[in-house]
Amino acid sequence: MSTTSIPAPRTGYSRHKSTRSKFEMFAWLFMRISGVVLVILIFGHLFVNLWVGDGVQAIDFGFVAGKWANPFWQIWDLLMLWLAMLHGTNGLRTIIMDYSEKPGTRMSLQVILYIASVIVIVLGTLVIFTFDPCPAGADPSVLAEFCKA
């Protein structure tokens, strides 16, 4: 019996590669990953600011100064700011895509959304890193205890 030999194909089989961008897949994945992280970050934030001690009644300039004197809370708030803003911006982008029909409406709503998001992210980041817990010349009665030392 002679064996039949099948010649190897000249080119390997390759599934047609999608030329579409993977942006939407990454956006979908980002919503899930950032969502899980935000559950931890935001419940932690709510617990410390609304539950512990006197809750919202205790929040004032000195309270913020006390928190941001610690790099732990600076990083916590920075992560929360960036993840929440990107998560929320992408969520609103999805909603704009779903409900706006005219290309002009779609475009202008998105432009407004992205401008607002960039302003809030940049402003928030600058505030966290340029914050002075004991500003010179401020009334000492509104500052945190550690400013008096």
């Binding site: 300039f61 000195g62 913020v64 100064a65 700011l81 929440a84 803003m85 929320g88 607002a116 809030v120 402003l123 928030g124 600058l126 505030v127 340029t130 914050f131 500003p135 401020a138 009334d139 509104v142 500052l143």
Partner: peptide, 17 residues
């Protein structure tokens, strides 16, 4: 709310008052 909340917190850079 988040937009408002970042703006109100940003007031720490204006003045404690």
């Amino acid at each position: 709310f988040l937009l408002v909340h970042v703006l109100d917190t940003a007031l720490v850079r204006v003045s404690p008052e």
